[in-house]
Amino acid sequence: MIPPSFSYRAPATVSEALALLNESDGEAKVLAGGHSLLPMMKFRFAEPALLIDIGRIPELKGIRQVGNRIHIGAMTTENELLESALLKEKCPLLPEVVRWIADPQVRNRGTIGGDIAHGDPANDHPATMRALEAEFVLKSADGERVVAADDFYLGTYYTLLEANELLTEIRVPVLPPGTGYAYKKLKRKTGDFAIAAACVVLSLTGDKCERIAITLTNVGPTPLRAETAEKLLTGKAIDDQLVEQAAQLAMEICDPAEDLRGDKEYKIHMAGEMTRRAIREAIDRARGRK
């Protein structure tokens, strides 16, 4: 399968890329790692007139700490996230999630920016970004804005990103010591998308849950945040009964699409189970047991 015809440009700087986006009047697509876009083009689900390859822009690469946040260039590959000593120490949730994404070859091309900006609810970074309360830097020829991951996802393949905008940087928090975290993903085989996955980030004071974020992958048109479950657990000592109630509340917000991975009932059930496991593992980690 060969994609339909298109023009190709590979700008060397962000400002050149933004100028090309501005001129293209919505007819262009940005090419990051290409492991979602090129398959979609092969199937004619996407037929852009112009591909703007941002793979030759050095300023879009790299991982660095700025105060209590880590700034990640949008073109940083999944394997670069996996290999980052900084992330391993300061935001270990991220490399943990990456291990569940695709396979070694795909992780060499696939980028965090592409995974986030594509708007596919099956991708793993979006729910993680919501749980981390990350921020995204969106640039256009007119300037830049910083938006919250929590506000970014509007629908399937539909995000806040305008046609003339480029996601240039992802900002995630440095997780304070004692933060509990977990990403639990059920998938059929290597490289597959989640049947359902749950992400939890929490902090405890003594036995009490000070703060918790619970988000879900691939069980709705966007990554979901289980706010009622978060509210239930906040301020309480989490026991088995509360874990169960939180899982039930998380299941209530699920609206997965039926496909070969399973029907709705099964996927919702699995989302509940992933939620239980993620909460338990995050608590164990917060208590230093794991």
Binding site: M1, Y8, A10, L31, G34, H35, L38, P39, K42, D53, G55, N79, D103, P104, Q105, V106, N108, R109, G191
Partner: peptide, 25 residues
């Protein structure tokens, strides 16, 4: 479609699937 790996080549010191890389890249 970048699943099977039969097209794996070494590209700038990394393994990639050549069915999902454009030659212009």
């Amino acid at each position: 479609s970048s699943h099977c790996g039969a097209c794996t080549v070494d590209f700038n010191g990394r393994s990639v699937k050549a069915c999902t890389v454009l030659t212009v890249q």
